[in-house]
Design a protein around this nucleic acid. Sequence first.
DNA 1: TCTGGGGTCCTAGGACCC
DNA 2: TCTGGGGTCCTAGGACCC
Length: 417
Amino acid sequence: MIGLVDCNNFYVSCERLFQPGLRGRPVVVLSNNDGCAVARSEEAKQVGVKMGDPWHLHRAAWKRSGVIIRSSNYALYGDMSNRVMSILRKLSPGIEVYSIDEAFVDFGGMTGREEQVARDLRATILQWTGIPVSIGIAPTKTLAKVANRSAKKESASGGVRALLTDEVQQMALSKLDVEDIWGVATRLGKRLRALGIATAADMRNAAPEALRKEGGVVVERIGRELRGERCLQIDDATRPAKSIMASRSFGRPVTELSELEEAVATFVSRAAEKLRRQHLTAGTVTTFIHTNPFRQTERQYSASALVRLSVASSHTPKLIQAALQALQEIYRPGLRYAKAGILLDDFEFAGTEQKHLWAHGDSEGDRRLMVALDRVNREWGRDTLKMAACGVMKGWSMRAEHLSPRYTTRWEDLLRV
DNA sequence: TCTGGGGTCCTAGGACCC
DNA sequence: TCTGGGGTCCTAGGACCC
């Protein structure tokens, strides 16, 4: 079984730790620049504050409802997150930190007592950190997400909900709109509804082939996960980042190149620090700028440019130089810019280079695929195994557009595809 | 005047190589 | 009239997540 531990209204809960006066009252934490709502207490949700609501548009209404505003403090949230995660690690070696406020936990080897373990865990976290969490337990990650949701919503759950058998799963899924499934949002939801799939139960009972046809391997995977078939594993390997971004909205219109240059240089130094911390070098730097998309009456412009470094680097001045060169290319005078940012990409690792192994389908294919997988298992470490399998899978049938819905290294599974 | 800041994965298609 | 098979690398954009 897999548990999903999710902190309730995380940023608000953190603020309340240091200001107990905020308890029981409607509290909203705002994004950078105090732009919009990124966290809401239960009381704030009840008076109608929505995720992403811009403050300047709702200021008056919130004031009338007695909503208390806090600017965000990410250093605090990061610190509290680490404390919660380290408690989880004590329980199970197999934890995957999925975001700042949630983690998947391997509940394997606890058959029959999952729920009690979760209740104890919940109490421990609350006692040691003061942060309330909800825990959902189920056979797959996607079902654990569903379980977590109902743990949060149903006050009778006491913050813990387990969906261990087919019957309870079916029941919970029939009450869930298709858009509320993890990995399905408005766009995909719309397309699924057109097929007559309106609830999570409908999706669970849909034929995998039909799901694949509609949304590819990703959607098929969600369907299988809802049936209790594990396609996504708990991933405790902390792999290096694939890209690093730094960007900001300005909070007021910016027109001068010099001002953009200053901002871009700051973004690069911040991103470069992250880069070095992970022992990576970047091969490309992208700079982007755009005008305020909410001001449709003004002339809109958005552009990005990518500069390739001759030698991958983590050296701040070199990266800044590249970013400014890119900025030169895209800057147009006479416009009011609202946001800018940079993206570091094309990383190299200070170590041996890793390549995909390829095996293709012909009369010899089965044998070659096995040989390739065997090499993957032998030559590459455990951490890279999952990725390796994907590489082989992709190569195996790239033209035929078949991807296995599972991440797997079992050649029997791959041959079936 | 004011509307966040990060990320990931997947697909499609083009150019090119032997 | 026929016109292979296998592969790399890149860009752009969509969709989703917290």
